[in-house]
């Protein structure tokens, strides 16, 4: 769980940084798309690098989900009779929404791929014209809303995911507990904000 999560996390960070190119003008984002396709092309061929990344991500997602399903199943087996009276658990909101949050994010990813990778659901839908596709998307308030909900869910997922992964990997000792808590929250906030500035930038006409 922690290892696959870490891979996905690194990808999310790279993705967010890439997105910010949108603020550098229309050419920048499209050029970045071309760069990714050309990256290591002498070895992997045009677009080869992206396919490698996609395969790795797919594997990580599958492993992440398998582990999640396994944990959920073990949990159910470990408590065959549930409590008759059980108020909602008292721990953090992020911790107790991991499973449903994960499902929301997975559904979003499907939509997101159909929208901006395959272009099927995109109002513009021209391959390679990334900037134009993005702008076309986020001029519609309901798309922005959908993205916002998903990104916030991602933020919560990362907040507990990071915190938990650091523990699972044994990084967090008792002495570094507060630091770990703070770091997990900080990183989750930065990523959430980092993803949201682009859609809202478009919506409010800062990115054209």
């Amino acid at each position: 769980m922690a290892v696959s999560g870490a891979i996905l996390f690194l990808y999310v960070v790279a993705h967010m940084v890439g997105n910010l190119k949108a603020f550098a003008g229309a050419g920048a984002l499209d050029d970045y798309g071309v760069f990714l396709r050309e990256f290591l092309s002498p070895v992997l061929g045009y677009g080869g690098f992206l396919w490698v990344v996609r395969v790795v991500l797919l594997l990580a997602v599958v492993l992440h989900m398998v582990a999640a399903v396994q944990l959920a199943r073990r949990a159910r087996k470990a408590r065959p009779v549930s409590y008759a009276h059980r108020p909602k658990v008292q721990g953090s909101y992020a911790a107790r929404t991991m499973r449903w949050g994960g499902v929301i994010i997975a559904l979003f990813v499907v939509y997101h791929l159909l929208d901006l990778t395959a272009g099927v659901l995109n109002p513009n839908g021209v391959e390679g014209a990334i900037h134009a596709n993005v702008v076309a998307d986020f001029q519609r308030w309901y798309v922005v809303l959908a993205y916002t909900l998903a990104v916030v869910a991602l933020g919560f997922h990362l907040r507990h995911g990071l915190f938990s992964a650091l523990r699972s990997l044994g990084v967090a000792s008792a002495r570094r507990a507060a630091a770990v808590r703070g770091t997990a929250l900080g990183v989750a906030v930065v990523i959430t904000v980092g993803f949201l500035v682009v859609p809202f930038g478009v919506l409010f006409g800062i990115v054209r």
Binding site: Q70, L71, R74, A75, K77, A78, R79, V89, Q90, G91, S92, A95, R96, M98, H160, F163, S164, R167, S168
Partner: peptide, 15 residues
């Protein structure tokens, strides 16, 4: 022994 796996929800330490 058939216990569930830890996902660090923190419920334990609260009680």
């Amino acid at each position: 022994l058939g216990f569930g796996g830890c996902t660090q929800t923190g419920e334990c330490t609260l009680v």
